[in-house]
Amino acid sequence: MDNRGHHPNQNSLVSVHNLTFSRGEKKIFDNISLEFERGKITAIMGPSGTGKTTLLKLIGGQLFPQNGNIVVNGRDVHHLKRDELYTLRKRMGMLFQSGALLTGMNVYDNVAFPLREHTHLPESMIRSLVLMKLEAVGLRGARDLMPNELSGGMARRVALARAIALDPMMIMYDEPFTGQDPISMGALVLLIKSLNTTLGLTSIIVSHDVYETAAIADYIYVLSEGKVVGQGTPQEIKESSSEWVQQFMNGAADGPVHFHYPAKEEYMDDLLHCDKSLFSRKRLFGEKPAKRRRYS
């Protein structure tokens, strides 16, 4: 059994034990174990397509694993009744890659949404709470804007304000830095770090942005092809002897992970085997310039 990544820890808020999850034929996770300590920022890193978002959905109980279990705050997520799962989710914030703001309402109503749905607080108190959360992400002035009027970075910050509206015990960030300009990226890095310390949150960051993540994470897991290929503090990861981890952290184009997606045939063979008509005189030197342009 592959138990490399498993160090049972009493201080864990989220523990993933021997998790196996596959989609069709493809194994997304192959018997992995992870620990997420309370009050710490733990990062899951790995190239695109390693199922990092899937992991967050598994932790949130939106997907069911084929094998293994996930324990959040002492409760097995996939063996809870629906009501219990929903009660647990109220204490788990999640920041989606797109922000997932409700497009039909403005920023203020979006942040107020979970409060209005889950509490019976008077509107005046909701207002104070919403303004507080918006102030924390620096967008109190943008409360009347609609989601389509926000930039990507602002949308993510609003989503963050919404995620902390119910004062959760943990937040899961799905690719928080992807597609952000350096300024928003800096703002988000700062926000995640400060929220973690001021609110005493446990944070799980899923990302492939090496520098930003390494700057704030307390512990890093590096995943590849369904396995944990490296783990440790950012310093340990940087000094890792694993070629794979080195390639990922340094962003080298070729290494243990090849630049080329695996193909069945050699390149030259592949070219020669292809449809002969593609190289016929008519096709290559035909009258229609539009067709020739494709090969120029």
Binding site: K57, G60, Q62, Y86, T87, L88, R89, K90, M92, G93, M94, F96, Q97, S98, A100, L101, L102, T103, F113, P114, E117, H118, A159, R162, L166
Partner: peptide
């Protein structure tokens, strides 16, 4: 469909709202 595509439904589920 668009709410689903933009993860609004999924996000709602994670906010413990059915």
């Amino acid at each position: 469909g668009l709410m689903k595509a933009t993860e609004q439904l999924s996000g709602m589920e994670m906010m413990a709202i059915d």
